[in-house]
Computed example of a mutant assay.
Amino acid sequence: MRIKELAEARVRYGYRRLHVLLQREGWHVNHKRTYRLYSEEGLSIRTRNPRRRRACRYRSGRSEADALNDVWAMDFMSDKLFDGRPFRILTIVDCHTREALATVARTNFRAYQVVEELDRIARSRGKPRSIRVDNGPEFAGRLLDQWAYLNKVELDFSRPGKPTDNAFIEAFNSRLRQECLNTSWFLSMADARHRINDWRIDYNEERPHSALGNLTPSAFAAQLKPARKVA
Score class of each variant (00 low, 15 high):
P163C: 11
E205L: 05
L150W: 14
L22F: 03
I92R: 07
R129W: 11
N69G: 04
Q178M: 05
M1V: 10
E25S: 07
E179N: 06
N69T: 05
P208Y: 05
L118Q: 08
K4E: 05
V11T: 11
Y13G: 00
D70T: 03
K127H: 14
Q178F: 01
G26A: 02
T97H: 10
A167C: 12
L22G: 06
G14E: 04
I169N: 09
R129L: 15
V115P: 12
S124P: 00
L68R: 15
Y112P: 02
R10N: 15
E117P: 05
H194K: 08
R17L: 12
L224A: 09
R129E: 15
D134C: 14
L21F: 00
E154P: 00
A211T: 10
K127N: 14
A219Y: 07
F220W: 09
Y38M: 07
Y13N: 08
P163H: 11
D75H: 07
D83E: 10
V114K: 11
L21Y: 00
L37N: 00
W27R: 01
D66S: 13
A222F: 05
D75N: 10
V230M: 09
K162S: 06
E25M: 04
N214F: 13
E8N: 05
S188E: 04
F220M: 03
N108L: 05
A148W: 09
M77V: 09
L143P: 01
F87E: 14
H28C: 01
A221F: 03
H209M: 02
C180E: 10
S60H: 14
R59I: 11
A227S: 13
Y13M: 04
Y38A: 08
D145M: 11
A55S: 13
R200S: 10
R52T: 05
A231K: 09
L150E: 15
A148T: 08
Y112G: 01
A111R: 08
R98T: 09
V153A: 07
S124D: 13
E154M: 07
D165S: 05
R17E: 04
R129G: 15
T103E: 14
D119I: 07
D156I: 13
Y35D: 01
R200V: 02
A148M: 08
V11P: 06
R2Q: 15
L101N: 10
A192W: 03
V11F: 01
A140V: 13
S39H: 03
T183P: 03
R46I: 03
L21V: 00
P86Q: 15
I169W: 09
R159E: 00
C56I: 13
V29N: 01
T107E: 11
S174P: 01
H96L: 08
G126V: 13
N108S: 15
E5Y: 02
A102Q: 11
H209K: 02
F76K: 10
S124L: 12
L68Q: 13
V230H: 03
A148F: 08
R12S: 02
T216W: 03
A192M: 04
R98E: 12
L155K: 08
P160Y: 08
R52A: 10
T91A: 15
A190L: 05
I92E: 05
L150V: 08
E116G: 06
G42E: 07
R17G: 02
W27I: 04
L143N: 08
D66P: 00
W185E: 06
